[in-house]
Amino acid sequence: MGVLARWEAFLVFVLAATLALGALASPYFLTASNLSIAVAGVMPTAIVALPMTLVIVCGEIDISVGSIVGLCAASLAVCREQGLGIEVSMLASLAVGMLAGALNGAIVAYVGLPSLVVTIGTLALYRGIAQIILEERGVTGFPDWYQEIGFGTVPGTPIPWSALIFVAFFLCFAVFLHATHRGRALFAIGNNREAARFSGIDVRRAILGVFVASGGLCAVAAVVLTSYLASARSDTATGLELPVITAVVLGGVSIFGGSGTLGGVLIAVLVLAFVQNALGLAGVTPEAQQIVTGCVLVLTLVLFGAARALRTAALFRRVRAG
């Protein structure tokens, strides 16, 4: 826990540095409207990072999130094409997302296959289904209020509606993970699955649960993203898994499972948002931005490993001395 607290302090410092460097790069950076745009742009990533944190804390991973978002967007679009109301379409898309997550979870938890392999498989599967049901069509013509979700702001403020949605889910997830017995069980599972099972924790149901949550929040992200892009297509959110996993790992969640906080993930999401925005303002191409994102991820892992090694060494010194 100690190193996590320090890691989050470090992240806050990185965030401050990002803001300072961004301000140096462009006088436009620190304006309310620019920060609002930066935040709105990263919200789909941030929303999916919430359940991803739970999945990774359990010691699993969900590579298929981008494809589930695409499948949800395609489902929404097909429902609209069939003349269904937007509310019904959104619910249908939510059901599809949770079902996709449940399939992942069932295979991982009850068949016992590694989640990395399973979700690489369903990454292709779900994207394929999305492309078959929607083909190359793009569905537009959403109601005005729907368009507002992704791009609009709360009247009179620069706060994006999507950020409000994120904050609501963030609070729910943070309370769940850090204050409930089910959240504690996820940490136990991620650290020592066998001991969790011996302690009377239903490990398989918990793992199924986090994957269903992942699918559900992918549906929410699909709504935000289709609204943001004002169009629903089958290739929506291609490659989303990468920034999502980057944010979670940068947030100090151990990729091996068992430790991490959603607070750290929140700061990491903001860092990523502002780094990309600042780079964009500084005229760095999207391709070069990817290089920066990749470097940030690898560097984080190296630093995190070093911090852990230092802490372990200090611990053993204390044990030996005392």
């Binding site: 136990a188 020592n192 001991a195 969790a196």
Partner: peptide, 13 residues
């Protein structure tokens, strides 16, 4: 270690 304790947890947990 394998079946009993979650070693990184505090004693309380």
């Amino acid at each position: 270690h394998l079946q009993g304790l979650v070693l990184p947890f505090p004693i309380r947990a």
